[in-house]
Design a protein around this nucleic acid. Sequence first.
DNA 1: CGAGCGTTTGAAATCGGTCAACAGCAGTGG
DNA 2: CCACTGCTGTTGACCGATTTCAAACGCTCG
Lengths: 259, 259
Amino acid sequence: MVRHRVYRNRIGGMKELKNKCSTCVLGQFCLPVGLSPADIGRVDSLVDKRLHLKKGDSLYRHGDPLSAVYSLRFGSLKTEHTLPDGRLQIIGFHLPGEMLGLDGIGESQYQLNAIALEESEACVIDFHELEGLAHQIPNLQQQFHRIMSRELTQDQRHLLSLGSLRAEERLAGFLINFSVRLAARGYLNNEFTLRMSREEIGSYLGIKFETVSRMFSRFAESGLIQLQQRHVKLIDMDGLYELAGQPNPLHLNTIKTPC
Amino acid sequence: MVRHRVYRNRIGGMKELKNKCSTCVLGQFCLPVGLSPADIGRVDSLVDKRLHLKKGDSLYRHGDPLSAVYSLRFGSLKTEHTLPDGRLQIIGFHLPGEMLGLDGIGESQYQLNAIALEESEACVIDFHELEGLAHQIPNLQQQFHRIMSRELTQDQRHLLSLGSLRAEERLAGFLINFSVRLAARGYLNNEFTLRMSREEIGSYLGIKFETVSRMFSRFAESGLIQLQQRHVKLIDMDGLYELAGQPNPLHLNTIKTPC
DNA sequence: CGAGCGTTTGAAATCGGTCAACAGCAGTGG
DNA sequence: CCACTGCTGTTGACCGATTTCAAACGCTCG
C-alpha cells in the first residue's frame, strides 16, 4: 500500500528554462497572483525543478523534514493522516494550481502524507528561497499569506461538514466543492471524473464507502446526478445546493434587489 | 443570543506604554518568538491597543472586513461557523498566546465568529502593519508562517478526530489536547476548569451534548477523570491517551532504546 | 480470460441521536 | 432567607442513520 517517495526528475538537467511561472497557465491561481511581470520573472527562479508523480507516489510523507512547498501543475493528490492502529483520515484532495506542503512549516517537518491520485506534476519551491523572495517582494508575501489563510478556511469548512452535516449533505457538498474548484480553473464543472475511490471519498467525508455508494445511487435515482463509474455529471445543481444546506450562489444575483 | 461587537477600550488613551510585547509573559508563545530584544521592541509598536471582552462578546464576526489579527492575552474564546438553517459548528477553542483572525486574511474578511467564553483580553495587531514589519524583520515573517501552519495542523488533527474517531475517543482526545496546551503555557495541566458548556464541547466534537455528558460520566466512573461541574481533574493520563488512540508521549522516552 | 479490486446492494447490528423527565445551581425578587 | 425561574447538566428509554457483515457483480489489467 505505502509506496516510497519517487524523485524521478531529480537526476540532472532540471534547471530548464521552460520551468517558468511567467508562461504557466496556472499563474492566475498560483503564487504569482498580483505580481508585476518583472516580479513574476523573479519567482521563476524559485521553481528550480518539477516532480513527476505516478499514481500512488508520495510527494512527501509525515515526518520528512520540510525543504519545499509545492504547487500542483497537473493531476491530483490527496493528503492524509494515519493513526497508529491503521485508521486513516483523508484531509484534502488537491487540484492544479493549489499549494501543497504548508503543513510542514510549523514544525519544519510535514505532518501529512501527500499522495498522487493519478499521473501528476508539481513545481518544487524551495521554502527558504520562497521566504527570502517574499521578503523582497511584498506582493508575493501577501499572496502567500492569502494562500495559507484560504487553506485554513477550506479545512474549516470541511470541519463544518464533518461536525454538523448528515452523510447525504456531506456528499452533496463534496460534489459542489469540486465543481466550484474546477470552474475556478476553467475546467468543465458540471461533468468530471473523480480520481479517487469511493473509499477515499468516504474517508474524506468521515463516512464508510458503502454509505458513499448508497448516497450516490440515491442521488442518481432522484435525478440530481448521472453516474458512470467515477464519471459524474451534475444535473440538478439547485437540488444539490439545497441538499448541501447552502443557497446556490448563482441565484443570489437574481434575488438581490438591484441598486 | 448574538451579541454585538464591543470595543470597550476604543475611546482614547489606548496607546499606552504598558502594551508591550517586550514585557509580556506570553512572549514565548506569541508573535515575538525568536526575535532579538531590539526587534521585539519594534513589535511593541504593532500592538496599539487591547480589547477587553466580556463573556459572549464578539472579537470579530463572519463578514467583517479584516483589519487586524489578534493575540489572546488572557481568557478564552471560541470560533464558530453557522449554517443558514441555524446549525452551528464550533471550529476551535482558543487559549492565551494564540492568534485569532487568521481566517480573515484569504478573502480580506473574517470567515468565522470569534466569541469570548469568559472575561478576556486580546492584543489588536493591525494586519497591514504586521505585514509591513514582517517585511522588515525576517524572523517575524518566519514566526508568523509557523503560527499559521500550526493553526492549519491543529485543524487537520481536528478533522482526523471528527472523521475517524468514535465519541469516546474524541472526548478523550479533547481533554488531552487541552491538557497539552495548558501545560505548554505553564498552567496546571492535570486539573482545570472548562470554560465552555457541554453543548459547546459537543459542537466542537461533532456529537450531541447528551453524549458528551454520558461520556464524561463514563470516564469518571471508570476512574479516568474526576468531575465537579466544569472542573476536571485528569487522573489516569495513560488511560486517556489509550482511549484517544494515541501513545502517551511521556512514555516514549522510556520505551525508546538509548543511543 | 481470469484474478483481484472496487462497487453495489441487502439485511442485521450498533452507536449516537432524539425525546423526555428531572436534578442542580445561579440569579431574581419578594 | 426562601420561593421562583431559567439555564445547564444528567440519566433513561426508544429510535434511526450509519455501520457492519455478507453476497454478488463488473471493471481493469496482466
